[in-house]
Amino acid sequence: MKNTLTKSVAVLLFVGLALVPVLGTRAMVQDLFMVLTLLILALNWNMLAGFAGLVSVGQQAFVGIGAYAMFAAVILWGLDPLVGIAIGGVAAIVLAVPIAFFTFRLNGAYFAIGTWVAAEIVRLSLAQWKALGGGTGTSLPKGTTKDMFGVDLIKDALDMSSSAASDALTYWLALLLAAVTLVSGYVFLRSRMGLGLQAIRDNAEAARSVGVDPIRLKAAVYLLTAFGTGLCGALLFIQITRVTPDAAFDVVDWTAFVIFITVIGGIGTLPGPVVGVIVFYALQRTLADYGTIYLIVLGLIGIAIMLFARKGLWGIFTAKTGIELLLLRHRAPKRS
């Protein structure tokens, strides 16, 4: 009963968000697009750090490679940006293989540094790619986003300008990707593999003794989250329309914010990133005029959460009210 209620609320929320481009203003669409993309990144990072114990500080590698692959697809090979997004995801997963090969040799905390160095190597290497502007970057050709597949259709159906239609399209893609990431995360964690993953997190030795292979599972999660992060990176830079190595591989934008969102919301819980991204957005709106103060506040909240409430705001909420959403526990089968 409770489960059906949760499901109907979630579906209503999804439909409500999907209607924003039709009913809301363009500024709302653009704001929510950024929120959704941050949510996608946070969901992926939460899966890595919160569930697989892989604390990566190098997720900007996959955002950046996704963005660059999409730009290459559009500029060098003349493909549609939507195809470019898919290529971005694939490029990220391909890049994740050698990075995993290297970083998985490093223990615990040194894994974090390894991923960061790997991201730097990719950034510095792509800055050598002269066809895409080298260190100064390049822009999407004028009108690319307006010629995207589907933009004309939306433009005619909703009677809006073609730039508003392209905003709407990228927004819907972000919403879809966020929903798919959340649902597949839930399904994955409830599955046999997901149970294994949580077993490793809780007690690695015991998990191995019942036949769970930690390296294989963690590698699978690493590759899958790289894919999601790469897709998100490509999508982000369709909206931004200009790519430079420094912006595409920005550790603050694509990793630090994402870490704070997850930590504040509740790392290792599925609703955590959703709560975190709402808090993050609210903070950003209220403190936007104060520049760096906003980052200081964010850092201090993150530290306070780690010191006093490790499961974040969602953890506090669950402990106080007893309400749990997207429960990952399995109920014991009833005895007959």
Partner: peptide, 22 residues
């Protein structure tokens, strides 16, 4: 658990950097 010290020092890094900028 290696996560809390990593995240706390990461937060500290952001705070110090922006505090100095300020």
């Amino acid at each position: 658990d290696i996560l809390p010290p990593l995240l706390v020092t990461f937060g500290l890094s952001v705070v110090i950097q922006n505090g100095l900028l300020e």
